[in-house]
Amino acid sequence: MQILTAEMLEKSVDWQALMDGLIAGHKMPKAHIGDTLLEQGGRKFLARSAWIEGLGACTKAVTIYPDNSQQKPALPSVQGHLIMFDEATGAPLALLDGPAETRLKTAADSALGSALLSRQDAELLLMVGAGNMAGPLIEAHLAARPSLQKVLIWNRTEKRAAQLAADIKRLTGIDAEAISELDEAIPEADIICSATMSEKPVIKGALLSKGTHLDLVGAYTPTMREVDNKALARARLFADSFDTTLDHIGEYKIPLQRGAIQRSDVLADFYGLVDGAKGRLDDDDITLFKNGGGAHLDLMIAHHFANQ
Rank of each mutant, 00 (worst) to 15 (best):
K159R: 11
D35F: 10
Q16G: 10
M19Y: 01
A74F: 00
R103T: 02
S110F: 06
G34T: 10
H213G: 00
L216F: 11
G293F: 00
E7P: 08
R236D: 09
I33F: 06
A57P: 04
Q149C: 11
S147F: 05
L112F: 00
E184T: 07
L104A: 02
I261N: 04
P66Y: 08
L112I: 04
A74M: 12
K11V: 05
S114E: 09
R234D: 05
H32T: 13
R156T: 13
R280W: 00
E188I: 15
D284G: 10
P73S: 03
Q40K: 11
T102K: 04
H213M: 06
E10I: 13
E199F: 15
L112D: 00
A231V: 00
P146S: 01
F305V: 11
K60L: 14
P222Q: 12
M19W: 01
P255S: 08
G173D: 12
N229Y: 06
G131S: 00
F242N: 09
G25W: 01
D97Y: 09
S198N: 06
A74C: 03
S69I: 15
R119P: 02
D298W: 03
R103S: 04
K30Y: 13
G173A: 03
L116V: 13
E199W: 10
M133W: 05
A122I: 02
A178I: 04
T157G: 07
V151T: 04
T157K: 04
V151D: 15
G80Q: 12
T36M: 14
D109E: 01
A108I: 02
D67Y: 10
D247T: 07
L125H: 03
R280H: 09
A260Q: 13
A219K: 11
K278R: 12
A295H: 00
I301E: 06
P73L: 08
D67S: 15
I174G: 03
I52H: 00
F305M: 07
D284Y: 08
K11T: 14
A162P: 05
L9E: 02
G131N: 01
I64H: 00
Q120K: 12
I52E: 01
A57T: 01
G113C: 14
H213A: 03
L137P: 06
P99E: 07
A268M: 00
R119D: 05
W154D: 02
I168C: 10
P222H: 02
L4F: 09
V62F: 07
I138T: 00
K60R: 10
L216G: 01
K11W: 12
Q70S: 12
T244L: 04
A94I: 06
L281F: 12
A260Y: 15
F45N: 13
